[in-house]
Computed example of a mutant assay.
Amino acid sequence: MARTKDPAVRTLLVERAAHMLRTREPITLRSLVAGTGMSTMAVYTHFDGMDGLWKALRQEGFTRLAARFTLITPTDDPVRDLTALVAAYLRNALEHPDLYRVMFDETFALEDLTAADATLEHLVQAAARARATKRFHPDTVPLDLATQSWIIGHGLVSLVANGPLPPTTLDHGPFLLTSLFTGAGDHPDRCRASVDQGWHPA
């Protein structure tokens, strides 16, 4: 007889595993359920074992990133919006540094690759709107520019969230994004204003 899956239990186990990562506790079947009143069978019921748990942790990182992106309301300034998405990416990573690290651990597959790809699509759409409004060159490829923007955000936050550099390293973000966007055709003065508004929203 199949065991009934409880979404609340699944969430509790994912949250507990994320907490254990954050506090550098070793995660095993027994340590994960210790003090929860559940048996180790709960991990098999909801994740088919520890490999499934790690997949769920990876997915949770992208789920939280997607939720953060949905808080960015599109405006009539797509360059500002693209910058705001990169800034949101950084904030999400700094708030969940251990989940962020697991997100890109390809030792385990994602549960839903499409949902993960959808996070990048937020940036692609902002880049496409910037091209459509003639902020970027007509031959700009939105996916390429979105990827380059993601690379800037990922590089910066990787050096701060789990790396050796201080948080002030993130202050280089506006300069890097302005350089990228002006290279794509945006006017320098207008670009700087948009990037500043996106990076430091009122």
Results as ranks from 00 to 15, higher is better:
Ala2Ser: 12
Arg3Leu: 11
Asp6Cys: 01
Ala8Leu: 13
Val9Ala: 09
Arg10Trp: 10
Thr11Tyr: 10
Thr11Asp: 15
Ala17Tyr: 06
Ala17Arg: 00
Ala18Gln: 12
Leu21Val: 08
Leu21His: 14
Glu25Tyr: 04
Ile27Asn: 03
Ile27Thr: 06
Leu29Lys: 08
Leu29Ser: 14
Ser31Phe: 04
Leu32Ser: 04
Ala34Val: 01
Thr36Trp: 13
Gly37Gln: 05
Gly37Ile: 04
Gly37His: 02
Met38Gln: 15
Met38Cys: 06
Ser39Gln: 04
Ser39Ala: 08
Tyr44Leu: 01
Tyr44Cys: 01
Thr45Asp: 08
His46Ser: 05
Ala56Glu: 04
Arg58Phe: 05
Arg58Met: 08
Gln59Glu: 15
Gln59Val: 04
Phe62Arg: 02
Arg64Lys: 10
Arg64Tyr: 11
Arg64Asn: 12
Leu65Gly: 02
Ala67Arg: 13
Ala67Gln: 14
Arg68Asn: 09
Thr70Pro: 03
Thr73Pro: 01
Thr73Arg: 15
Pro74Cys: 01
Asp76Gly: 07
Asp77Val: 00
Pro78Tyr: 01
Arg80Thr: 03
Asp81Ser: 00
Thr83Asn: 06
Ala84Ile: 01
Leu85Arg: 00
Ala88Gly: 14
Tyr89Glu: 11
Leu90Glu: 11
Leu90His: 04
Arg91Ser: 15
Asn92Pro: 07
His96Thr: 01
Leu99Phe: 10
Leu99Asn: 04
Leu99Gly: 01
Leu99Ser: 04
Arg101Gly: 08
Met103Leu: 13
Met103Ala: 09
Met103Cys: 13
Asp105Ser: 08
Asp105Pro: 01
Asp105Asn: 15
Glu106Met: 15
Thr107Met: 04
Thr107Ala: 09
Phe108Val: 13
Asp112Ile: 06
Leu113Met: 10
Thr114Ser: 13
Thr114Val: 12
Ala116Arg: 07
Ala118His: 13
Glu121Lys: 13
His122Gly: 05
Leu123Trp: 05
Leu123Glu: 03
Val124Thr: 11
Ala126Trp: 05
Ala126Val: 05
Arg135Asp: 02
Phe136Tyr: 07
His137Gly: 11
Asp139Tyr: 09
Thr140His: 02
Val141Arg: 03
Val141Thr: 10
Val141Lys: 10
Pro142Ser: 02
Pro142Thr: 02
Leu143Tyr: 08
Leu143Gly: 07
Asp144Phe: 12
Ala146Ser: 03
Gln148Ile: 12
Ser149Met: 10
Ser149Leu: 08
Ser149Lys: 05
Ser149Cys: 14
Trp150Pro: 09
His154Ser: 14
Gly155Ser: 12
Leu156Thr: 11
Val157Ser: 00
Leu159Lys: 06
Val160Cys: 08
Ala161Trp: 00
Ala161Glu: 03
Gly163Pro: 07
Gly163Asn: 12
Pro164Glu: 15
Leu165Met: 11
Pro166Val: 12
Pro166Leu: 08
Pro166Met: 05
Pro167Trp: 02
Thr169Tyr: 10
Leu170Ser: 06
Gly173Cys: 15
Phe175Ser: 14
Leu177Asn: 04
Leu177Cys: 08
Leu177Val: 10
Ser179Glu: 10
Ser179Leu: 07
Phe181Val: 01
Thr182Ala: 03
Gly183Tyr: 13
Gly185Trp: 05
His187Gln: 15
Asp189Phe: 03
Arg190Cys: 07
Cys191Tyr: 02
Cys191Asn: 00
Arg192Ser: 09
Ala193Val: 03
Val195Lys: 00
Val195Trp: 01
Gln197Thr: 06
Gly198Phe: 00
Gly198Ile: 03
Trp199Cys: 09
Trp199Lys: 06
Trp199Pro: 03
